[in-house]
Amino acid sequence: MAYSEKVLDHFANPRNVGSLDRGDQRVGTGMVGAPECGDVMKLQIQVNEETGVIEDAKFKTFGCGSAIASSSLATEWVKGKTVDEALEIRNVDIVNELSLPPVKIHCSVLAEDAIKAAIEDYRKKRSH
């Protein structure tokens, strides 16, 4: 068994690597990690405050290929979605899209958690 081409593609050419200004009111930052492998994932979104649409997303992940591919895919998916729509993304969708093997499912969970954490951070900023 091997990785799917999609995983390899996202791993070799990850989209949206980088970071956004944490201090910016429009930016939400999600930082998550997995204890067993030491993976850590930072996913940031920049939201248009009028439309609620995510205009930009960046990530930086330290971890295995599947974790990098999962977060790369997550940033692609959230862009253009509203915050509420982005919350609908489930790790299963990531698993199916990338054909992740069972041992790597936790990577997709991490990506889902990262999206949620980023949105939560953005909403927290707005409520202040």
Partner: peptide, 22 residues
């Protein structure tokens, strides 16, 4: 069972550490 949650309070520091390692 072992939990899948990483200690949240350490994550920022871990991220910086990984950057430095890179």
């Amino acid at each position: 069972e072992q939990s899948k949650q990483a200690p949240a309070e350490l994550l920022d520091e871990v991220f910086d550490l990984n950057l430095a390692l890179e």
